[in-house]
């Protein structure tokens, strides 16, 4: 036991020294580097982004048009996480649990029913207006999904789980993903046609809705899984 304590204190000292060395080096690199001015490619993005008539949110221009390939791979990463959760969704609920099954709160129960529609509308608004201001499919989906979680906390997770047919949800999710994929391929092969001749906005909104739908279902799947298994030891 004493030996263990000794080796732990050695480990502790060594860790603190090594990680602080890393921190010190990085901090000095921050101060020794050139003071930031807008990087060259950043300036190009700003110039080109402001030229596009319908897109006033340049950040959206970057991740929704110029670098849409990255965004698609990001969507794939999200889908992989959701797929991982669904693979493990048949885990047996543990017999050993700790604490209350559900914390009853009158505030949550009372406010959920009228706050949820507001959250849903806000999510939709973000998906529709990503090219004009902050927002986008991911944010919209996460807001919608956590809104449902809110509802589930007031109505009971099992009840909400029954209301959403898992099989159909899965189909819708993957069809939305296929849609985003096709948009990427067309956008890369014929960017002029998609983003300029068609004025872009229609396509962008539809793609955002598809991403939003996918993320919405995925978020709900993840949150529902963890709510279902809460309190298990």
């Amino acid at each position: 036991m004493e030996m263990d304590n000794f080796s732990f204190s050695v480990k502790k000292t060594f860790t603190v020294i090594i990680v602080s060395l890393f921190g010190g080096l990085t901090i000095s690199a921050v101060f020794l580097g050139r003071s930031p001015d807008t990087a060259r490619i950043g300036r190009l993005y700003l110039e080109r982004g402001f030229e596009l008539e319908n897109i006033s949110n340049t950040v959206f221009g970057v991740y929704g048009m110029f670098r849409f390939y990255d965004t698609l791979l990001e969507l794939m990463i999200f889908s992989t996480a959701v797929l991982g959760i669904t693979i493990f969704s048949d885990l047996e609920p543990s017999t050993r649990t700790r604490g209350e099954q559900m914390i009853e709160s009158h505030v949550v129960t009372a406010s959920a029913s009228f706050l949820y529609p507001i959250m849903a509308v806000f999510g939709l608004y973000l998906a529709f207006s990503a090219h004009l201001g902050p927002g986008g499919g991911f944010a919209a989906g996460v807001i919608g999904g956590s809104g449902i979680l809110f509802l589930a906390l007031s109505k009971g997770a099992e009840e909400m789980g029954r209301r959403f047919n898992e099989h159909t949800m899965k189909r819708v999710e993957y069809i939305a993903l296929v849609f985003a994929m096709l948009a990427m391929v067309l956008g890369i092969l014929f960017p002029k046609l998609i983003f300029e001749d068609l004025q872009g906005i229609g396509v962008i909104i539809v793609v955002n809705m598809a991403i939003g739908l996918k993320v919405f279902i995925g978020t709900w799947a993840i949150l529902h899984f963890f709510v279902k298994h809460r309190g298990e030891v």
């Binding site: 950043g42 700003l46 982004g49 221009g61 970057v62 990001e74 999200f78 991911f138």
Partner: peptide, 19 residues
Amino acid sequence: YADPLPQALVLTSIVINFG
């Protein structure tokens, strides 16, 4: 204006961290 590129990239890595 702020450089838009890091902000766009950070959106991607937030989602990755969520996963």
